[in-house]
Every structure is written in structure tokens, then in C-alpha cells.
């Protein structure tokens, strides 16, 4: 499967010494040895096929990479902002609904005057107060989350 002279021929091919700068004896071997003949045929075809590369300069590549970095960061931030905004809107709607519910529930007590305003809390549905507190917390946390999202 391998010929002991392969590495010698490969080295000559890779360093552009093949065939002119090689000894006649090595060239004769490559003609008579099937393995080395394959090696010469394939390696020559491939090395002759290396296309001339026209790549951007390293400065341009670096600049594009930094720009892409900023774009990715902006995209990630806008995703976070969208989530925060959606949560805030939902929270606001829930607060309004809760307050409206509370107001209608306490309409009876309104008639007894503002002095009995404290009854408001008692008149809220049982789940109203925890919900109200949670939503207040979300609203308070939203600007903080927004700050961390856009900080970068």
C-alpha cells in the first residue's frame, strides 16, 4: 500500500523540485512503481490546479468582522428589546384591567365617600393584589433589563 520512496517524491513535488531537480534514478522509479506513478499524477494535477486567490486584505477582513460583530450585537439587543417591550405592554394591559375590575367592584364603596378608600383593597378580587404586585415588579424591572440589553 505504500512505497518507501513516496515521501521523497512527495517532498520533491511539494518543494517544486519535481522532476527537473531530481535524480534520474528517482524519476525512473516513479515510472516503474505504480504507487509513485499515482502519487506523481495526482499531486501534479492538484498542485497545477491551485487557483490564484484574490482575497480581501487583512485590514478589510478585520473591518468586516468588527462590523458583523456590531450587527450581531444589535440584532441580539433588538430581540431582547422586543421581548421586554412585549412583556411591558402585556403587563400594562393587565394592570389596567385589574384596576378597572377593582374600580367596578368598589363602585358601591365610592358612594360612601373617599374616606372609605381603603376598602378598595378589600374589594379587589382575591388574586388581584398578588397580580398587581407582580406586575409592578415587572414594570420596575423592565428598564433595568432594557439597560443590560442595550449596554453593549
Amino acid at each position: 500500500m505504500t512505497c518507501p520512496r513516496e515521501s521523497e517524491i512527495l517532498d520533491a513535488l511539494m518543494t517544486a523540485r519535481w522532476p527537473e531537480a531530481c535524480e534520474d534514478e528517482l524519476r525512473a522509479h516513479a515510472q516503474s512503481c505504480a504507487l509513485c506513478a499515482d502519487l506523481v499524477l495526482v499531486a501534479t494535477a492538484i498542485t497545477n490546479d491551485v487557483p490564484e486567490a484574490h482575497v480581501p486584505t487583512s485590514g478589510v477582513a478585520w473591518w468586516r468582522m468588527q462590523r458583523r460583530d456590531r450587527e450581531e450585537a444589535a440584532r441580539a439587543a433588538s430581540r431582547t428589546i422586543t421581548i421586554v417591550q412585549a412583556s411591558s405592554i402585556l403587563a400594562a394591559i393587565a394592570v389596567v384591567l385589574t384596576i378597572l375590575g377593582g374600580v367596578s367592584a368598589m363602585s358601591e364603596s365610592w358612594r360612601n365617600g373617599i374616606a372609605h378608600g381603603l376598602q378598595l383593597l378589600n374589594s379587589l378580587p382575591q388574586w388581584g393584589l398578588p397580580l398587581l404586585l407582580t406586575l409592578a415588579l415587572v414594570l420596575a424591572a423592565a428598564p433595568v433589563a432594557l439597560y443590560f440589553a442595550v449596554r453593549d
Binding site: A53, V55, S58, G59, M65
Partner: peptide, 13 residues
């Protein structure tokens, strides 16, 4: 980065 790119970009391309 730029030094590494200069050494490798053509062969990667």
C-alpha cells in the same frame, strides 16, 4: 488576527 489572516487566507480561499 491580521498576521494570521495574511499567512492563511489565500490557501483557505
Amino acid at each position: 488576527f491580521r498576521a494570521f489572516y495574511d499567512r492563511t487566507a489565500r490557501s483557505v480561499w
